[in-house]
Design a protein around this nucleic acid. Structure first.
Length: 487
RNA sequence: GGCGACAUGGCCGAGUGGCUAGGCAGAGGUCUGCAAAACCUCGUACGGCGGUUCGAGUCCGCCUGUCGCCUCCA
C-alpha cells in the first residue's frame, strides 16, 4: 500500500489514515492496572502499539502518545459488588494501595524497557486526575446523561442513542441471558458506574459532590485523554477485550460531554493464548515477563531473552491471536539470531567493489507498503529476510554494492527505530571493559589453537573449541582464520 | 442466548482472485582435518460440502470445530 491504512474497529474496515492535524498524531492506549506483574499478554499489546508509534514517527509524524496507569477503580468482580483490585492486593501484601501501585508501575516500566518498548510521552495516573473526573461527571449529570443514587453516580445508557456503536451491541439484546443481574440502585442494568460511594473501610477515597467515594473505571480514560489530547483525537488503542464495555463506555461519556466525535480510529490488538485459551491474570494462566526472563515458571524449561519475546510477537500480526509455546519461542529465537547475523555481515561489509547497486528504493518501498497495510510486521520481517539474505551472500563473496553505506544506514534505522530490535544487542549490553579483556584472552587462545591445528594436533584444537562452546563461546574456522561468537 | 473472530504444509505464521510469503525444523549437496557458519537444491498446504468465476486459500451460502466479548482483564 502506498498510503498508511489502519483497521478501524468502528467501521470494521481498513481505512486510510488521515490525521486531524497534518503532521501530528494524538494517540491514547489503555495502560495497565498496576496490581501485579505484567505478563506476555501485556507485552503483545504494548509492543504492538510501540511499533505503531515508532512507525508513525518514522513516517515523520509528531506523535503524542498517552498511556494511562490505572491505580484505582477496577473491581475484582461485578461492577457493583466487587472489591477494588488494588485494595485487595494491598490487603494481601499488607501495604498501602499507593505502595502497590508504585511498585507495579515500576515493574511494568522495567519490563517494558527490557522489551524496548518506548515510554509513552505522558503516563497519567487515574488517582492524579480525580478533579478532572469529577468535573466530567458533574457535566454528565447536568446534561441529563447521569444520575446520582445514594452517593453512587451512574451513566444512563438510554440517554445516549449511539451507545453500542463500537461493539455492535444493542441494549435490549444484552438484557436476557447475561450474567448482569445486579441491578442494585441502577435504573437500567446496562448503566455503568461513574462514581462509587465508599464506606470508611475503603482505603482509596476522595471527597466529591456526592460524598466520599472513588471513580468508576471508565471515566479515567475519558477525562485524561481529553486533558492531554483534546475532545477529538486520532487513535485510541487497547486490547480487544476492552472493546466492550470499557471503550464503549468511554465513547458514551466523552461524546455526551463534548457533543463531538471522540476518536477517529479505534485499534484493538488480539490476545495471547496458551493452549488455545486466553492468557489472563484473573484466569490464572498468565506467565509474567519476569518469569520469561528468568525461566522461573512450571510451564517454562528455560529463560527467554526480552528481545526474543519481542521478535516472537512481531512475527504475528497485532490483530491475530498469538499462540504461545516454547517450541514457537525457540523458532523465534533462532530466527532472530539468524537475522542478527545477517545484519552483522552487512554492517561489516568493507568498501564497495564494482558490484551493481542494491535496489534500496524498491526494498524500502516494499517494506513501507507492508507496514502501511495496517502495520504488518510479520510481512515486514519476511521482506527483511527475503532481501537481506541475498545481499549478505553477495557481501560474503566480495560483491559489495556501491551504495552499501546508504543500505546500511537505512537497514539499521528501520530495524532499530521501527521494529525496536537492537542490532548490537549483545555488544551493547556487555560491559565494555570486560568485553575488551575477554577479546584479548580469546585472541590468544585462538592463536594457540591455530598453532595446534597447523601441527595437526586435532585433539588439542577440538578440546579448546568444545570447552569454549560449553562456556557459550563458539569458535568458527574460516578461510581467513578463526573467529568467535558469544551465545 | 446475543455480538464478533478464526480454521493454511512437521511447527509458528503472512496472504490485495491468477505468478515462490517468511521463519523454524527436516533431507541432499558445496566448503572444511572434523565441526560450526555460509552458500546451493528440495515441500505444490490452505477444515468439510456446495456456489459465483475462464480461474478461489482469497468472494457467497451452509455445515463442523476452536476462540474472544457480553463480569475485572492488554
Amino acid at each position: 500500500m502506498e498510503k498508511l491504512h489502519v483497521f478501524n474497529t468502528l467501521s470494521r474496515k481498513k481505512e486510510e489514515f488521515i490525521p486531524l492535524k497534518e503532521g501530528f498524531v494524538g494517540m491514547y492506549v489503555c495502560g495497565p492496572t498496576v496490581y501485579g506483574d505484567a505478563h506476555l499478554g501485556h507485552a503483545k499489546s504494548y509492543v504492538s502499539f510501540d511499533v505503531i508509534v515508532r512507525y508513525f514517527r518514522y513516517l515523520g509524524y509528531k506523535v503524542r502518545y498517552v498511556q494511562n496507569i490505572t491505580d484505582v477503580g477496577h473491581l475484582t468482580d461485578d461492577a457493583d459488588s466487587g472489591e477494588d483490585k488494588l485494595q485487595k492486593q494491598s490487603r494481601l501484601e499488607r501495604k498501602d494501595p499507593m505502595e502497590i501501585a508504585e511498585h507495579y508501575t515500576y515493574t511494568y516500566f522495567r519490563d517494558m524497557d527490557a522489551l524496548h518498548v518506548l515510554r509513552p510521552d505522558i503516563s497519567p495516573r487515574a488517582t492524579g486526575h480525580i478533579p478532572e473526573q469529577i468535573a466530567m461527571i458533574e457535566e454528565l449529570i447536568k446534561k441529563g446523561h447521569a444520575y446520582e443514587v445514594n452517593g453512587n453516580v451512574y451513566f444512563d445508557v438510554n440517554s445516549d442513542s449511539d451507545y453500542g456503536k463500537l461493539s455492535g451491541r444493542k441494549l435490549d439484546e444484552a438484557e436476557s441471558g447475561t450474567r448482569v443481574n445486579t441491578a442494585g440502585d441502577k435504573r437500567n442494568a446496562a448503566d455503568f458506574a461513574l462514581w462509587k460511594r465508599a464506606d470508611e473501610s475503603h482505603l482509596m477515597q476522595w471527597p466529591s459532590p456526592w460524598g466520599p467515594g472513588y471513580p468508576g473505571w471508565h471515566i479515567e480514560c475519558s477525562a485524561m485523554s481529553n486533558k492531554y489530547l483534546g475532545k477529538t483525537f486520532d487513535i485510541h488503542g487497547g486490547g480487544l477485550e476492552n472493546q466492550f464495555p470499557h471503550h464503549e463506555c468511554e465513547i458514551a461519556q466523552s461524546e455526551c460531554v463534548h457533543d463531538t466525535e471522540f476518536v477517529k480510529y479505534w485499534l484493538h490488538n488480539n490476545m495471547v493464548t496458551l493452549n488455545g485459551q486466553k492468557m489472563g491474570k484473573s484466569l490464572g494462566n498468565a506467565i509474567s515477563l519476569q518469569q520469561f526472563f528468568t525461566g522461573d515458571h512450571p510451564l517454562l524449561t528455560r529463560s527467554w531473552k526480552p528481545q526474543v519475546i519481542r521478535f516472537f510477537l512481531l512475527q504475528s500480526h497485532y490483530r491475530s491471536t498469538t499462540d504461545f509455546s516454547e517450541t514457537a519461542l525457540e523458532a523465534a529465537e533462532t530466527g532472530l539470531k539468524n537475522l542478527m547475523s545477517i545484519l552483522e555481515s552487512i554492517a561489516q561489509a568493507g568498501t564497495p567493489t564494482a558490484a551493481a547497486p542494491f535496489n534500496l528504493e524498491g526494498f524500502k518501498k516494499t517494506l513501507e507498503s507492508r507496514m502501511n497495510d495496517d502495520f504488518n510486521t510479520a510481512m515486514a520481517l519476511a521482506v527483511l529476510f527475503e532481501n537481506l539474505k541475498p545481499l549478505r551472500a553477495g557481501i560474503l563473496k566480495g560483491d559489495i554494492p556501491e551504495n552499501i553505506a546508504e543500505v546500511q544506514s537505512f537497514v539499521f534505522r528501520f530495524v532499530d527505530e521501527v521494529l525496536g530490535l537492537s542490532v548490537s544487542g549483545q555488544a551493547a549490553n556487555a560491559d565494555n571493559d570486560a568485553a575488551e579483556k575477554l577479546d584479548h584472552a580469546l585472541k590468544l587462545i585462538i592463536e594457540l589453537r591455530a598453532n595446534a591445528r597447523s601441527s595437526k594436533d586435532w585433539s588439542t584444537a577440538d578440546l579448546i573449541r568444545d570447552t569454549l562452546a560449553q562456556a557459550g563461546i563458539r569458535i568458527e574456522d574460516g578461510p581467513n582464520g578463526s573467529t568467535y561468537k558469544l551465545d
